[in-house]
């Protein structure tokens, strides 16, 4: 039932049943002149069909690198140095490029913050969408075109038949993101990885996109990894949430539990600093210090230099503490009733 799990073998084995994606101890490092950056450092989680996992973190927490690692789009100097990614029983970390090419776009689709990373600016929308279908299936053009039109209609683009003939620059930002989402849906993937897909959009447009994605996961049973820095959006979208800090998941569990009763001081700090959690006009509760430099992390718990709960014990690496599918990495967690 839970996305993130203890690494004990027994629990892991039982939870893997029914999971379409299972990530174990994933490590993605970047070799830089200044040293080795451990962008993702020992990440584990599971995802079932139809489930929405919110992956939350600040810049540099490794949330995007996690998404890119799953589809193996990490480029040098980055490298997956350890761990397993099992997608529908297939091991991805060792898969050949040809195998990955067959999976990407067909079974695993990705939506980026900037839709122009998906769309080719010099090709018409229909050309691009038909190509995305024919890359994986032998389908007559007319049929592929009809599928593309239906996909555009599904994400709420008015008069899709005419819009198929348009170029990306003829769409607004919100409409482009819809086209990118429609393209991701073309082959009815089992998993969509959405990396900050609504961050660049206005509030009213964001709400439209969120409504579409919600409807789609309901109708097609697609699993979604929703990567975002925005706890409020994740809270409204996800079934499970995993909070990342300095390359690790520091807390994870069902969204209501994590948001309403956070255990890790970092999660609690993030939630507590939101203006809506503070009395109007008063100072906001704040996490002091800066987002960490991955080359210069404190020993033990990476959050300890910014944490009010920290003491000598935190110089050691905290393991995963779990209760009823709500896990955290902290020696001095916030009280559950707090």
């Amino acid at each position: 039932m839970t996305a993130v799990l203890e690494q004990t073998a027994g629990v892991a084995a039982s939870s893997r049943r029914g999971a379409i994606l299972s990530v174990r101890d994933l490590k993605t490092y970047f070799a830089t002149p200044a040293g080795e950056v451990k962008a993702v450092d020992g990440l584990s989680f599971d995802l079932r069909a139809g489930q929405v996992l919110g992956l939350v973190g600040e810049s540099g927490s490794g949330k995007s690198v996690t998404g890119f690692s799953i589809v193996r789009l990490i480029e040098p100097p980055g490298r997956i140095v350890g761990g397993e990614i099992s997608f529908k029983g297939q091991e991805l970390t060792g898969a050949s490029l040809e195998e990955m090419r067959r999976l990407r776009g067909r079974h695993i689709a990705m939506i980026f913050q900037d839709p122009m990373m998906t769309l080719n600016p010099v090709l018409r929308i229909d050309t691009q969408m038909i190509e995305a279908i024919q890359a994986h299936e032998r389908v007559p053009i007319a049929e592929a075109r009809a599928r593309a039109r239906d996909a555009l209609g599904k994400v709420g683009i008015p008069s899709p038949e005419e819009r198929l003939k348009a170029y990306p620059h003829q769409f607004s930002g919100g409409m482009r993101q819809r086209v990118a989402i429609a393209t991701a849906l073309l082959n009815q993937p089992d998993l969509i990885i959405a990396d900050e897909p609504t961050t660049a959009l206005d509030v009213t447009i964001q709400a439209q996109i969120l409504a579409e994605v919600q409807k789609l996961t309901r109708d097609t049973n697609t699993a979604v990894i929703w990567i975002s820095h925005d706890l409020s959006v994740v809270s409204g979208m996800a079934d499970e949430v995993a909070v990342m800090y300095a390359g690790r998941i520091v807390e994870a569990g069902p969204v209501a539990e994590v948001i309403n009763a956070p255990r890790h001081p970092y999660t609690a700090g993030l939630i507590g600093s939101l203006p809506s959690r503070n009395r109007r006009g008063e100072r906001l509760r704040q996490i002091h210090g800066m987002t960490p430099n991955l080359l210069d992390l404190p020993e033990g718990c990476a959050f300890r230099t910014r944490c009010d709960h920290a003491d000598e014990a935190c110089r050691r690496e905290p393991g995963l503490f779990a209760r009823h599918g709500h896990v955290h990495r902290c020696f001095h967690p916030c009280r559950e009733d707090a």
Binding site: M175, V203, T204, Q208, L210, G236, L274, S276
Partner: peptide, 23 residues
């Protein structure tokens, strides 16, 4: 409409109902 659609952390697993059209 703006107040209606702003995501709030208090509302979990909410259903979004979007304002039609664009700016």
């Amino acid at each position: 409409a703006l107040l209606e659609e702003i995501p709030r952390i208090e509302t979990q697993k909410r259903a979004y109902t979007a304002l039609k059209g664009e700016l």
